[in-house]
Design a binder for these strands. Structure first.
Length: 482
RNA sequence: GGUGGGGUGGCCGAAUGGCGAGGCAACGGCCUGCAAAGCCGUGUACGCGGGUUCGAUUCCCGUCCCCACCUCCA
């Protein structure tokens, strides 16, 4: 069964066939680097990372591009505020920080947060500020085609002419007439209130570093323009998949589509949108203040559990965060981990040999990760049964299958969770623990259970968990701290 | 007002016109000196009202409620 994906534009699940056989071009919206990421941003990264991994497993060569919007009104506002009298510096926002320093700093914070949960770096991460030339070319094409115009006032803005583009609204299935008027929208020199800025004229107070010369005067790019310019530059005028959060459908993606299509580009063939992360039913967002940061999650669960949690729901579903969510994910992850550690790693199966058909079918069905996880857990259970029955061949084969599945889901670090290590300190620790375990084994052999239990308690107090198995006692560091 | 997505057992979360995905939690059993891990088993789930049907959680109509977007948003 071939891959099928839900496309927002056609509002239907369609067979996915790339433009070029064997190759997939994927563009997905990254961050406007005006602040630290929250969990919602990271979910989006995980979703498109899983998509990329699945496409690659399926045999495609994937070119993925995720933009960095490193100049916009909010970035400039925050930087400007840091120079204002009475500004109170905080951990996130120090005093007197130029806009480009702020943007670059948060770009790195974002990358660290993505990396912490195993989101692979895209093929390329272009920055808006590095593509002003391409944006100018696109604006010129739109003006030439009669779909953009310089502002009628002297602002130096250039707007997209929504009324000139019949298809405007096609992505989100809205007609311009039915759209609610934005009462706070500044009509400025617009022909229609819904016209949006392609280019924003320089204002007297703007930093000189945040303005570029253009045929329409000095200024900076409008928000939506960079994605059109950069996606088509690196992926072609028509490319396979455009992704992003559900909240980007309108206006961001609608406007991107309008710009590119009106300029004559085919643009994205599939539009994928991931669901929001909510907290007690409400969308996580800075303005509401119900943010959970990646740091807060990492404080209560290991990265692999955080990743499991963020990826476990279907990507189009809303994901509601609750205090118990992460411990639950941790428990599920440990179950998988325990099986892999029991089964050992002595197998040489290729992923294709052992990947369960049901897993493939689930992933091909619009990335049905919940169903895929069901297959994963069934495999763990069957593998555990095989171990209990002494059928090591079957167990090893199941372990290989689990390994193949968790690699696709980006949970492969589960495999490396064993306590033994090459580092000298770990070796020394292993020696000490083993001495304790030997002493305990002697006590147990002598039926001196008080001593045996005391030894186990002392290890537990030191953060070391002991488990008895038919092959003797094993130990591990207590998960998630003591 | 417009557009889109939902309401599933104690919780999370899928599929499906007919045999109750999967995980977490709970309970019972096996195993174990005990524990842990593991295995087996248990639970009268589909917002409400109609309709179609031999049969509806699933399809249709109505209705209530929730969420997202309508120019800051992952």
């Amino acid at each position: 069964m071939a891959l099928r994906l839900y496309d927002t534009k056609t509002a239907a699940i369609r067979d996915f066939e790339p433009l070029q056989p064997g190759q997939v071009s994927l563009y997905y919206c990254g961050a406007t680097v005006q602040g630290a990421p929250h969990v919602g941003h990271i979910r989006s990264g995980v979703v498109f990372d899983i998509l990329t991994r699945w496409l690659e497993y399926t045999g495609y060569r994937v070119t993925s591009v995720r933009n960095v919007t490193d100049v916009d009104d909010k970035i400039l506002q925050k930087a400007a505020a840091s120079y204002a009298p009475g500004f109170e510096p905080s951990e996130d926002y120090p005093a007197e920080e130029p806009w480009f320093a702020l943007a670059y700093r948060f770009e790195q914070v974002f990358n660290a947060a993505y990396g912490a949960v195993g989101v692979s770096r895209p093929t390329y991460e272009p920055r808006a500020t590095g593509h002003i030339t391409e944006m100018h070319a696109l604006i010129q094409r739109l003006i030439d085609a009669g779909h953009a115009y310089p502002a009628t006032d002297d602002s130096g803005d250039v707007y997209f002419d929504v009324r000139s583009w019949q298809r405007y609204g096609e992505l989100t299935h809205q007609s311009v007439e039915d759209m609610q008027d934005a009462p706070d929208a500044d009509p400025r020199g617009k022909r229609d209130r819904r016209d949006f800025a392609l280019w924003k004229g320089d204002k007297p107070d703007d930093p000189t570093t945040a303005a570029w010369d253009s045929p329409w005067g000095r200024g900076r790019p409008g928000w939506h323009l960079e994605c059109s310019a950069m996606s088509t530059k690196y992926l072609g005028s028509t490319f396979d998949i455009h992704g992003g959060g559900l909240d980007l459908r309108f206006p961001h993606h609608e406007n991107e589509l309008a710009q590119s299509a009106a300029a004559g580009d085919g643009f994205a063939r599939f539009w994928l949108h991931n669901g929001m992360v909510t907290y007690e039913g409400e969308k996580m967002s800075k303005s509401i203040g119900n943010i959970i940061t990646p740091e807060e999650m990492h404080a209560v669960a290991r990265p692999v559990a955080v990743r499991y949690y963020l990826g476990q729901a279907h990507y189009r579903s809303q994901l509601d965060y609750k205090p118990g969510s992460l411990p639950e994910a941790e428990a599920a992850v440990e179950r998988i981990e325990n099986f892999l550690n029991r089964a050992g790693a002595d197998y040489e199966y290729t992923a294709a040999e052992v990947m369960p058909d049901a897993f493939v079918a689930a992933m091909n069905d619009d990335l049905n990760v919940p169903a895929a996880l069901a297959v994963l857990h069934e495999t763990v259970r069957t593998g555990n049964s095989a171990l209990d029955a002494g059928d090591d061949d079957a167990a090893v084969r199941h372990a290989a299958a689990v390994q193949a599945m968790i690699t696709v889901l980006g949970l492969e670090e589960l495999r490396a969770a064993e306590p033994a290590g090459a580092a000298a300190a770990e070796e020394a620790l292993a020696n000490l623990v083993q001495q304790q375990l030997d002493a305990r084994a002697e006590a147990k052999a002598a039926k001196d259970f008080d001593t045996a239990d005391a030894l186990r308690s002392r290890l537990a107090a030191a953060g070391i968990e002991v488990e008895d198995t038919p092959q003797g006692a094993t130990w591990s560091l207590t998960k998630g701290g003591v």
